[in-house]
């Protein structure tokens, strides 16, 4: 008995030692830069970019308040907050669209014969063979004024001038939706895949209508997948930079652009760092709420 627990302990020790490299990598390339960003956010901007090592809360204050352009008093300003809220809205609409399209897709995949399913999973992952930037530019080609959508609609005589789809909010949301759809489909698929569909038959045998079957049998099974999928779509959509930059034409900033602007033309690194920290805090709060609400289900699937 004692020998056995020794072996278990030995195993644990080995396991811990084996995780050391990955922990070190996370610490060095994840935590350390994060700490630097955090430190920067509490400093003062240097004249041409960079920071002065001097403690200052100005960056965080200016998130909600602005020294008035014209008389220097500190007044409430919703500029940055609005950009955060718009970003959250875009990310939410993208997440919902992903769910609406992704759930039936995942359901369809999970109900195929087992021998075919891997083929479907492969099809879903094909977009990942190319880079996000390439995929975003591909969308740009499709929706721009002389792209196939407008050309097609005009050839059919439905419209006579190209629809200005490119550089609109619709284009941004569509781009986010397309970029992150697989993150929604795959977790939902994996949560329904193992489901025993005899339970659905049992439901019908007990006179449940289709809607009731969906609501009381399938949805509860798919719920962990839906939650994971939503989190996986929402978070990258919230911090997206490439998509709004390319498809939005810079008309409506998302947080990603706002942060980039501070590090470049605006030459205010502390403000950019503070925005990054606020963005991260926002995401962390969402995750914690999620875990508290669904302690067991969250992030499974």
């Amino acid at each position: 008995m004692a020998a056995h627990s020794d072996i278990v302990r030995q195993d644990l020790k080995t396991q811990r030692r084996l995780t050391l490299p990955s922990v070190a990598v996370i610490f060095l390339f994840g935590l350390v830069p994060l700490l630097i960003v955090m430190a920067y956010s509490f400093m003062k901007p240097a004249v041409y970019g960079g920071v002065e090592p001097e403690l200052s809360l100005e960056a965080y204050v200016s998130f909600l308040f602005q020294r008035d352009l014209f008389d220097d008093t500190l007044v409430f300003s919703a500029d940055y907050l609005l950009i955060f809220l718009r970003t959250a809205l875009f990310a939410m609409v993208a997440t919902l669209t992903c769910l609406l399209i992704g759930f039936p897709t995942a359901y369809y995949m999970a109900t195929r014969p087992e021998s075919q399913r891997n083929r479907w999973v492969l099809l879903i992952t094909i977009p990942f063979w190319s880079n996000l930037l390439v995929r975003t530019i591909a969308i740009l080609f499709i929706i721009r004024d002389d792209g196939p959508i407008n050309a097609g609609l005009m050839a059919l005589g439905i419209i006579d001038a190209p629809l200005p789809i490119l550089f609109s909010n619709t284009a941004i949301v569509a781009g986010l939706f397309y970029s992150f759809l697989p993150f929604m489909i795959l977790p939902i698929y994996s949560s329904i895949e193992r489901f025993d569909f005899q339970l659905v038959e049992a439901g019908y045998d007990l006179y449940a209508r289709r809607w009731q079957v969906l609501r009381h049998i399938i949805l509860p099974i798919a719920k962990p997948g839906i939650i994971t999928g939503s989190v996986l779509v929402f978070i990258p959509a919230f911090g997206a930079y490439v998509t709004p930059l390319i498809l939005g034409g810079g008309n409506h900033m998302m947080i990603g652009d706002l942060i980039a602007l501070q590090f470049r033309a605006a030459r205010n690194w502390p403000l950019g760092a503070a925005f990054s920290m606020i963005l991260m805090a926002f995401v962390l709060i969402l995750l914690i709420l999620q875990i508290r609400k669904n302690p067991r289900e969250a992030l499974h699937g």
Partner: peptide, 13 residues
């Protein structure tokens, strides 16, 4: 530059 930045952010929000 800081004031240009405010004008720019307000314009692009």
């Amino acid at each position: 530059t800081a004031m240009y930045n405010k004008i720019w952010t307000n314009l692009r929000r």
